[in-house]
Amino acid sequence: MSRVPSPPPPAEMSSGPVAESWCYTQIKVVKFSYMWTINNFSFCREEMGEVIKSSTFSSGANDKLKWCLRVNPKGLDEESKDYLSLYLLLVSCPKSEVRAKFKFSILNAKGEETKAMESQRAYRFVQGKDWGFKKFIRRDFLLDEANGLLPDDKLTLFCEVSVVQDSVNISGQNTMNMVKVPECRLADELGGLWENSRFTDCCLCVAGQEFQAHKAILAARSPVFSAMFEHEMEESKKNRVEINDVEPEVFKEMMCFIYTGKAPNLDKMADDLLAAADKYALERLKVMCEDALCSNLSVENAAEILILADLHSADQLKTQAVDFINYHASDVLETSGWKSMVVSHPHLVAEAYRSLASAQCPFLGPPRKRLKQS
């Protein structure tokens, strides 16, 4: 649940008159999402009104509101027999009622949201009550392989729920002597030191190019640089560091992050930047690179990204790559990247197969709970 924001200063709310007192009302909304995959969808019983329910879910471990999704594969009634019906059901509720908006969509073979439908307002739910769409999607369109909505005969539904909580009022009075504290510009100011090479005390040599930097900042941000300058190493004695395995453009992006906490060109060089972040123990930059690479996972590059993640101990990226390969196994196994990995990294192939087997055979063990970014 997000923290209630402070109200904007009255002088910034309007260029008009300023009242002596004010009130700011925040209506709290808890948002969460749920993904439900139905394997072997074409084998569902086709009687009209037949119901399939998901397991229950909530916004978190401490949330007492429990929900589930309900599907009628062949419609709810005679009117909707040519459609799939989809509903959000409130299973248990400690209150007399709650209000919530919802959005349903289908994830296609690429994991993209399609055929989205959402409620136009927050509906009133009581325990045992459901709301949804009797005519969510035509069955003939859903079952047509050309539309790519049932890869490997799996129907994957994605649901986003927004639950309306209580409202909170914050009130106060205006004073004539309003003090406005300026925003912190530390990142910009440190970035200026790097860009202008002011007050530098060490030189970093990268592929024949020299960059002036500040030992204190490098040591504070990177345990690797800290070790170089702290001990009686040649880098500490000469205040000069030779860097041979990072390209200059990648190095500059890494230094921008060290000084400012930002990497504006990360998406263009996420793979190389991940390697640099791993070498210099820049954990936050490493996770930022993992996130960017996750966003660009595809059938063509899944094997290469899995190898990269394994090489640099990028655990979150590795998990996402394995899950992606499992979901698109029939396509990924035909790529040149996968065939190369079979020869060069057989242990990763074995890991992917083990994960695929456990996903398809849940009876082999208890269900695993899916539970950071600093």
Rank of each mutant, 00 (worst) to 15 (best):
P5D: 01
S6G: 02
P7I: 01
P7R: 10
P9N: 03
P10R: 10
P10G: 11
M13T: 04
M13W: 06
S15A: 11
G16K: 14
T25R: 09
V29G: 13
K31S: 09
M35H: 03
W36I: 04
F41Q: 11
C44G: 11
E47L: 05
I52G: 04
I52F: 08
I52A: 03
K64C: 13
C68K: 14
R70C: 12
P73S: 06
K74I: 10
K74Y: 14
K74E: 14
D82N: 05
L89R: 01
C93S: 15
A100I: 10
N108D: 10
A109S: 09
E112D: 03
E112Q: 10
K115F: 13
K115Y: 06
S119C: 07
R124S: 12
Q127E: 08
Q127C: 13
W131R: 01
W131D: 00
K134A: 05
L142D: 08
L143C: 02
D144L: 14
E145P: 11
L149H: 05
L157R: 00
L157C: 11
F158E: 03
V164H: 02
G172N: 03
M178C: 07
M178A: 06
V181F: 01
C184Y: 05
G192D: 08
G192T: 08
L193Q: 04
N196L: 01
N196M: 13
S197A: 13
R198Q: 09
F199K: 14
L204P: 15
L204W: 08
Q209H: 07
Q212T: 15
V224D: 15
F225S: 00
F225M: 12
F225E: 00
M228Q: 13
E232A: 08
S236L: 07
P248W: 09
P248R: 03
V250S: 07
K252Y: 06
I258F: 11
T260N: 09
G261T: 08
K262I: 03
A263P: 01
L266H: 01
L285I: 02
E290F: 14
L293R: 09
C294P: 02
N296P: 14
N301L: 08
N301K: 08
I305Y: 03
A309W: 00
A309P: 00
L311S: 08
H312F: 05
A314R: 10
V322Q: 13
D323F: 13
A329R: 10
S330V: 11
D331G: 12
W338H: 00
S340M: 08
V342E: 02
H345S: 03
A350Q: 09
A352F: 07
A352P: 06
S355K: 02
L356Q: 04
S358T: 03
L364M: 12
P366S: 12
R370L: 11
L371K: 15
Q373E: 13
S374Q: 14
